[in-house]
């Protein structure tokens, strides 16, 4: 079974090449090797998100988050680091506030595309009635026209996603085979597919619309891969690579000590995680003021 928690990382990670280039001109040669390592870890560890900012794993317990927060505060709090610590501490406080509160963390996880391990927490994907079968139902919501035929014929299996006006599978085999047969046939655009059960989680994950990266309050929206089946294929391939990489570099990662590369990554995380539009303008103003 695939771990859903690591699904999105590949997708929303910025091009690793960019990061490598970035490291190359920022860091002296001897560090570059590590930076590359870090970058590949970065690919695993997610985008520049709050988890990375705090240097905790995506499944970190509240206790781990607290410890990491304290450790970083001791380093960056303006009482210790002086004025320069202000911006960092702001971001740290924000990250901590979100990750330490269950409801905010869930919301945040959803916004970065991370869905909690297992069904139930994130609430996406279908559940199974009865034993797992080799074939499962999957609605390609890109093609669905929202005719409600399937829901009409097999209401225990299909449901409407009202927010997006498309149908999706609620319960695998929620109705008897006859009803399911009828509903699949009733679809005017043939968007209900029988798929392999092991492919299902990937497909269901990918079909979830996720926020488009926006700039400040503009340009945000939702998107999903145009061809979910193609996306699933390449996704699985990347996932395999990722696992290989993970094994390769597992021993080189040291949890306790922050390597210069990790510091570097956090550095850029701070930069990237800048507040919205306005905050950016203000920090710029501040900078130019203090520069005088």
């Amino acid at each position: 079974m695939l771990a859903p928690s690591s699904f999105h990382h590949q997708i929303s990670t910025p091009n690793p090449l960019q990061i490598n280039q970035h490291c190359n001109f920022r860091k002296p040669i001897w560090r570059r090797q590590k930076s590359v390592v870090r970058c590949s870890q970065n690919k695993l560890g997610g985008t520049k998100n709050y988890y990375e900012l705090l240097g905790v794993s995506i499944d970190a317990s509240p206790q781990e988050i607290k410890n990491a927060y304290r450790k970083l505060q001791k380093k960056y709090h303006p009482d210790i680091a002086g004025e320069e610590g202000h911006e960092r501490t702001l971001t740290l406080n924000e990250a901590y506030k979100v990750l330490i509160r269950d409801e905010l963390r869930k919301e945040y996880d959803a916004s970065i595309g991370r869905i909690g391990a297992g069904v139930g927490r994130g609430g996406f994907g279908s559940i199974w009635k009865g034993p797992l079968r080799p074939q499962a139902l999957f609605v390609d919501e890109n093609s669905c026209i929202g005719c409600r035929e399937c829901v009409h014929h097999a209401s225990n299996t299909f449901m409407m996603n009202e927010a997006f006006g498309t149908a999706r599978v609620k319960v695998q085999y929620g109705d008897d085979d006859g009803k399911i047969e009828t509903s699949v046939d009733s679809c005017p655009v043939n968007c209900i597919h029988w798929v392999n059960t092991e492919e299902l989680p990937v497909l269901e994950y990918l079909i979830q619309p996720r926020p488009k990266p926006g700039y400040g309050i503009y340009g945000q929206g939702w998107e999903r891969p145009a061809d979910v089946f193609m996306a699933a294929q390449s996704f699985s391939k990347q996932l395999k690579q990722q696992e290989e990489n993970q094994q390769k570099y597992a021993q080189s990662s040291n949890e306790e000590e922050e390597t210069p590369a990790q510091a570097q990554a956090r550095e850029s995380a701070y930069r990237e995680l800048k507040m919205e539009n306005f905050a950016r303008i203000w920090s710029w103003i501040k900078k130019s003021n203090t520069g005088q």
Binding site: P78, L90, N93, Y96, M275, A279
Partner: peptide, 10 residues
Amino acid sequence: TTMPIRRDLI
């Protein structure tokens, strides 16, 4: 709210 803090509202 934990300080330091920056918040905005439109």
